[in-house]
Write a protein that binds this DNA or RNA. Sequence first.
DNA 1: ACCTGAACACCGTTCAAGT
DNA 2: ACCTGAACACCGTTCAAGT
Lengths: 199, 199
Amino acid sequence: MAKKAYHHGNLREALLQSARETLAGEGIEALSLRTVAKRTGVSATALYSHFKDKQELLTMLATQGFDELAVEMEREQACAERGESTGGLIALARGYVQFATQNPALFQLMFGPAPGEVLAAPQLQKAGARAYGLLEADVARRMEELGIPDQTPVATAGAWALVHGLSSLLNDGRVTAEKLGLPDNAALTEQVCGLLDIG
Amino acid sequence: MAKKAYHHGNLREALLQSARETLAGEGIEALSLRTVAKRTGVSATALYSHFKDKQELLTMLATQGFDELAVEMEREQACAERGESTGGLIALARGYVQFATQNPALFQLMFGPAPGEVLAAPQLQKAGARAYGLLEADVARRMEELGIPDQTPVATAGAWALVHGLSSLLNDGRVTAEKLGLPDNAALTEQVCGLLDIG
DNA sequence: ACCTGAACACCGTTCAAGT
DNA sequence: ACCTGAACACCGTTCAAGT
């Protein structure tokens, strides 16, 4: 207990925290286990007492990310319902884009390299489904209004593709609000979502 | 000339070729310089006579990719003009999605991790602009028909975001034609593009 | 049960040396 | 000019050993 407590109780969380900081500060390329360990003040291999391997740690981070993405979308939706901003799909899209641009490295990790494996993790499935569900519910409501409820799946996929693509292109710097003569990403998101028939 | 010729004339192209094969066969994670060198039958460091570093080789691959993307889009556009398929933005979108799904690792590399650096390379800028130009020209034509030509930049960004997002989600397996009850990606692309006002 | 340190097979990159 | 081999600092992971 003098120095720091031999087992300091929650090394697992501390490692996730360090990984998250490294991700935010140095980017995804710099996220090595040895860096995370050093940052946490622990040996390079202490990690293996708490995670199967690097992939498992990354999966946990990505799961966190999907949860926070859903929270951000819900937050924007709630704002809209209180009449503080434009509502419907645009609010959800704003949340999505906001999360992506404020957490670029994490967003990259969530939709990153590991293709089949990441999808395999059931926690990730579930976490991702929450954000997807928000989109789907709103689109379904809209489709019923339009009298074409059977179009919901395709329209949801389209809405997702639009906000996801926009987020990616913004993070890469390939699209910017400035280039398009718009004040900020929120305005850009609104304009782009307006292109959808299901606005 | 007996064994293989000491300088075998075109090691640069041979390395790019090997890298491309590794990318297609083993994925982006497996693309190491040492693997590429071994596949080409050359020492691990021979590479540095032809490329500044790994980044430069990757940039070359990405540039190739952008060129091929534009070619694929043009090919689909030409098909449509010959009346063999649906035209306009849908044809370009089909080309985009087709390229992405047929070259997932290369597509990943093109829009991959290196954010600022990749964009810095002027060749990449130019190669990417070609595909972007195709999209923009078609959207501009459409916007003039609709009498809102000043909307072209935002609409182009939206169209790009849609096809790009769809490609990413397809490559991740997060969206599939099957899940949406559609026969293939071409049909899916058509449906999704139909959601845009500018279809 | 939790953590360390040495070790292994990899990686990108450099540098002197060979042709 | 083009290529090699040894070397360096990194990386993920394993394993025996310590507490």
